[in-house]
Design a protein around this nucleic acid. Sequence first.
DNA 1: CCCTGTGAAAGTGTTCACAGCT
DNA 2: AGCTGTGAACACTTTCACAGGG
Lengths: 251, 251
Amino acid sequence: MATGRTHRPATRSRGIPEATVARLPLYLRALTALSERSVPTVSSEELAAAAGVNSAKLRKDFSYLGSYGTRGVGYDVEYLVYQISRELGLTQDWPVVIVGIGNLGAALANYGGFASRGFRVAALIDADPAMTGRQVAGIAVQHSDDLEKIISDNGVSIGVITTPPGVAQQVCDRLVAAGVTSILNFAPTVLSVPDGVDVRKVDLSIELQILAFHEQRKAGEEHEGTAPPVAAHQDSSEQGPDGDVPAVMPA
Amino acid sequence: MATGRTHRPATRSRGIPEATVARLPLYLRALTALSERSVPTVSSEELAAAAGVNSAKLRKDFSYLGSYGTRGVGYDVEYLVYQISRELGLTQDWPVVIVGIGNLGAALANYGGFASRGFRVAALIDADPAMTGRQVAGIAVQHSDDLEKIISDNGVSIGVITTPPGVAQQVCDRLVAAGVTSILNFAPTVLSVPDGVDVRKVDLSIELQILAFHEQRKAGEEHEGTAPPVAAHQDSSEQGPDGDVPAVMPA
DNA sequence: CCCTGTGAAAGTGTTCACAGCT
DNA sequence: AGCTGTGAACACTTTCACAGGG
């Protein structure tokens, strides 16, 4: 399975698979809930059920982080919360800016999940002068003219784009030029960014279209003689990572 | 994945890979833009660039739909728009209900991407009597007492949940009991549903945590001698099912 | 025995490279 | 010649099943 170097007992492995990274926040949530109920330890089976995955996958995922469990017993909840938080980088503070304070931007500003982990809404930015100074979620909206200054003054490296699609790319360019290196994009636009900048996209219309595809298939296959029975996908999360091949791929 | 068997031999007929399905809406969007500019044909290279994927992947994806291109020329834009729309089930009307009309629910109700394809917001539902009758995006909010009747009167099979996490599961149960078979869940909760019901999840906090992971890694590897250079991931979403703090969650 | 940790097998997705049609 | 369509190679992910420590 290795690209040449197959060794290392995996204490602090360097290559956590992307699929695993995407599940760590899930485990963290389930663990946080257990922690609040003062549950001291949990088995892979129980935790997997709470997170909605199967236990083999969970154990495999944890094996990339190291051996944090105890055979015959399970995992120490507090210890695991700490390890996963650290691995995800949540033990530090991440100032975030939200650009585009429409309905969606306001919804995000009010979203509790931001503050609940290391994320802090450092600023809300909008291009409409009428919005400037208005309070949203207890934060005064600032004008986009000051975007660069806001980014650098607050040491922001993560930006959230909730603007109309027409201006998303130029907002993105300005964010990147100002030093942002991770972007969460809600605009239905393909953003192009230089190497070294991560973009994740959330696209409502795409999610619905995927549901429609499966929905249509359910209806259509009720009377099919040849097709195998389709048992609907339980939790949908596949999606195609893709990318466009950056220059260098780590081995 | 609770699903017993989701095996798909895909021998020759209906077996479009999930990863391909997830990209079809992307292609469709790019094609629609070309169509609006009256571009008659497009090559895999051009379309791939517009959609942000590579051309080999795009051709492979299209090959699952059939041979809709012309060698030496490319793809007919209008024809492809039609074929993909049909494949995704967008040639029919999909009435959708949104349950939970807070900031996020209102944002979704106003989101243009809904109406732009076959989706139509058939009803907005909220448990707060103070919301009942209020107009959001030109639609009167209805009380959740009438949820079952609304679903069946409108023939709704797709539901969107934008409620607080604490009530998401019970809303989900009622939707399913009333006949909804596809759910788009924005609440940070793991929903359990019977077989035959699809759930897709959008979780803002998870997306941010994934970004934070990569962000942290970038910062940490600036001075690593042994590690290969990390070229950031171009792409976007992979998603992760998830669930969070069920009990008490301030903020 | 318990339950974790992990090789190996199976399944899924991506990329390559070129055959074959226009 | 140009560009699609695709088998085959490669890469990544999930699942299985069991070795091995507590």
